[in-house]
Amino acid sequence: MENVLKVGAAPHIVTKHDTRSVMLDVVIALMPALLAGVYFFGYRAALIVLISIASAVAFEHIWNVALKKPTTIGDLSAVVSGILLAFNLPSTVPLWLPVAGSFFMIVIIKMAYGGLGHNFMNPALGARAFLLASWPSYMTSFTKPQAKLFPVLSPDFVTQATPLGILKEQSGEALPTYLDMFLGNLAGCIGETSKIALLIGFIYLLARGVISWKIPVAFAGTVAALAWVFGGDTLFTGDWLMHLLTGGVFLGAIFMATDYTTTPITESGMIIFGIGCGLLTMIIRLVGGYPEGGSYSILIMNVLTPLLDKYIIPKPFGKAAKKIA
């Protein structure tokens, strides 16, 4: 038979969205929060994000070259990790800190376990936990937002406690208003303060079908419910809005707890994951030793994910149906 054609098995067509385009969508969704971070914390925030991205991509590339593996930086996952790591740092950290974080994030958590899709916990949060344990003083000195793009070049930072820190220490400092919390005009990490910017990113991700609403809504909903019930002096008097709008709940719920690799793949698994994150966050906030528990709660749920995926087997279509007489 002359001119034999190439064959292939169905389906013959594939969606336009591939790993790279999905990662690009996440990068785009992170842009409003990045702009807000730079607006509130000045050029230094941008510098830290850039260093973090560059070092994350560089470490991944060096790893592949050193182990003679095909290059994987084209999938843009290192860029996403780099941005998320920087978002979890205060703007005052020394410039070598994001590099150290990137090393732990890319080399230890991601590549040593097999690269994209094989890490057992969220790389950015794992690196944050590493940095927090190693250099706690750098990681917990937050500055007051300056709300101007180019502050004085030798930054003379005014440190300020985060609202959750104020609550924990019961220092009596004034809390920011809800509007400031929503816009991002409060002390905190670079990417976590502006809730409105994170929400814009959330809506973009939902519209593009990159993530599902289940984990973020379950996470935030649980935080709000528990804060309302247990957050006050007596039951059902807690300031749930304050708990929702401060700390890393938005950043964590939208961008960290929806990381594909370290979260369940089934719908009910996602709901349980979200509720678990919310529960652990509030336990750490209300009775734990740290002011903020978002990142640890996600890390704990990350390592529980294989169990969730193992024990949740969805019912197939038609399996539960009763015969119609």
Binding site: I13, K16, T19, L116, E267, F317
Partner: peptide, 25 residues
């Protein structure tokens, strides 16, 4: 017409789980 095929590692995104009309994994 066939689309681009750049194979990467599975990211466990779960899109196949959402897409399966038989609700399988």
């Amino acid at each position: 017409d066939l689309g681009i095929n750049v194979v990467t590692n599975c990211t466990r995104c779960g899109k196949c789980v959402q897409a399966c009309p038989m609700r399988l994994v």
